[in-house]
Design a protein around this nucleic acid. Structure first.
Length: 501
RNA sequence: GGUCCGUUCGUCUAGGGGUUAGGACACCAGAUUUUCAUUCUGGCAACACGGGUUCGAUUCCCGUACGGACUACCA
């Protein structure tokens, strides 16, 4: 429904639908459920399509590609729904209701004061309200003719067992007296979700309804609707998915939680058209669609073995609806990061170099492909996001101008100074070095000065990177080249001092 | 409040009447790297509780607790 950005839970729901459809050679249909005009959000439909397309979910039918059951937007199908509502009235399963919102509220408030009573429009209260069950035929006609606003409500039977067979939860039985007389047609002439969904699923020959658990309570109502419309045989299978929960505490995962914990909740960037507020998406944050999909697939489903890394095709062949869990899954961004890392590492040096090159270009840093490949190779084991490549790789192009004070205080000592001074002089005379020769030179210097090389490594790192972390130091020296290393040593000696008191 | 759904390491989960209850993420330690990281090895850590059924229950049944969803002319 185009009521805002599709969030990550919706992506997972779409994914499970997609996996099942692909696995069994079915059709994946995109239907836009835009029956609530007041909640319609500009750009939301496009967002849904783009987001799903980014993660690799493709539709066989939908508003763009068309299909045998077009149109695929419920607003464009508006005229189709009323006949079915009328059919339900004719068969005695629905009725007109003329109650104003004030009257409804008054009824609910009155009921709330009675203990144990369910404040709802149902078999116990409908005869006290203003509807075609309580009004005379003449009065009803008058209302309809004078265009009194009305809704059409389902007449839910008094005391019947409604049985829902859920693919995930098994048999769920609800007593019909617990279900209220849901509005089927709104006063603006639009159907509610309940009617539109049932009618369209029937018309579009939908085989499976896989949706979030929040729909479970209204599923019996849908079963009832299928029965009343005489479509019980064509009723789709239902599967109600466990919810995605917030990482700490309990409750449904929300945008607020995600913001607080500092991770995205939308697949791609979303700018709220009302507030103009930008919410960063997983895509823009640097998650690959493969990683996101893999992570999401395993949040509530598992293959029954220890395999964790799945391509979309592998997911399709492994997916089984009865291996979906029943309980809600907390959203663990660390695991998502781990998946991202796995997929990033699986890329070749050339691919990583390409990412590095384009990121460097944005910062106006020149780099040739050969060097980019070396840098990518040096960095490949230490990155989680593509941007890490340029973030940490930057040290190969821009010399540090300041040094981490804590590390300097700890590691910048007389031994380091003498080793580095000598190392700088040695390197200054060289044109090229390899990791191996760099190591040899370092070893000879430390041996000559009788300093264990392990003791000055962090000082060397500090000089070369400005901080305490980075790729292998010998490799770093090889990529930097002897002249640059010597220059950085010289700069460090100048700024950090050649003597320590 | 009512209805429905759920409950295995901190997290995602496997398992299933008799198991040393398995894996992954995270965390911790050791080894390697004369280097932070990687990698490797190891460690920590779970069947919500109470009743049944049973020779035996974490597994089946019932209850309790806890959690969640729903309770709109929203989807």
């Amino acid at each position: 429904s185009p009521t805002g950005a599709l969030h990550i839970g919706g992506v997972r729901t779409a994914l499970y639908n997609y996996l099942l459809a692909r696995k069994h050679g079915g059709k994946m249909i995109l239907r836009i459920e835009d029956t609530d005009q007041s909640r319609y959000v500009q750009g939301a439909e496009e967002y849904i399509k783009e987001a799903l397309s980014w993660v690799g979910i493709e539709f066989d039918e939908g508003p763009d590609s068309g299909g045998p059951y077009a149109p695929y937007r419920q607003s464009e199908r508006k005229s189709m729904y009323k006949n079915y509502a009328l059919q339900l009235i004719d068969s005695g399963h629905a009725y007109y209701a003329f109650d104003s919102s004030e009257e409804l509220e008054a009824m609910r408030n009155k009921l709330k004061t009675q203990k144990g009573a369910n404040a709802q429009y149902d078999s116990t209260t409908r005869m006290t309200m203003k509807n075609s069950l309580t009004l005379s035929v003449k009065e009803v006609e008058n209302h309809l003719e004078s265009k009194t606003p009305y809704v059409i409500r389902l007449k839910v039977p008094d005391n019947e067992q409604v049985v829902l067979n859920d693919l995930i939860r098994g048999e769920v039985t609800v007593l019909s007296s617990q279900i209220d007389d849901k509005v089927l047609m709104k006063s603006d002439g639009m159907p509610t979700y309940h009617l539109a969904n049932v009618v369209d699923d029937y018309l579009m020959k939908i085989s499976h309804v896989i949706r979030g658990e929040e729909w479970l309570p209204s599923a019996p109502l849908h079963v009832l609707t299928y029965q009343f419309l005489g479509w019980e045989k064509e009723m789709p299978s239902f599967a109600h998915l466990p919810l995605l929960l917030k990482p700490d505490g309990n409750g449904k995962l929300s945008k607020r939680d995600a913001d607080q914990m500092g991770f995205p909740i939308f697949p791609i960037n979303w700018t709220d058209p009302k507030t103009n507020e930008l919410a960063e998406g997983f895509r823009e944050r640097g998650y690959s669609p493969e990683a996101l999909i893999n992570f999401l697939a395993l949040l509530g489903w598992n293959p029954g073995n220890n395999q964790e890394l799945f391509s979309l095709d592998e997911l399709i062949s492994a997916f089984e609806i009865d291996r979906i869990g029943k309980s809600g899954a907390k959203f663990d961004i660390q695991k998502a990061n781990w998946f991202n890392q796995q997929y990033l590492r699986a890329k070749s040096d050339e691919e990583l170099a390409g990412i590095l090159l384009s990121d460097l270009k944005l910062q106006n840093i020149q780099c040739d492909l050969e060097k980019a490949i070396s840098v990518a190779n040096a960095l490949r084991e230490r990155i989680t996001f593509p941007k890490d490549l340029a973030d940490v790789g930057k040290l190969f192009f821009v010399a540090p101008t300041q040094f981490d004070e804590k590390i300097a205080a700890k590691k910048w000592n007389q031994e380091a100074i003498s080793v580095l001074s000598m190392l700088g002089e040695e390197l200054h005379q060289k044109k090229v070095i390899t990791a191996t020769s760099a190591n040899e030179i370092l070893q000879s210097v430390t041996a000559a000065l009788n300093v264990p090389s392990g003791k000055i490594m962090q000082a060397l790192r500090l000089v070369l990177t400005g901080g305490a972390s980075g790729p292998d130091l010998m490799i770093t020296m090889e990529i930097l080249g002897p002249q640059e290393v010597a220059a950085r040593i010289g700069y460090a000696l100048d700024t950090l001092g050649r003597k320590v008191s």
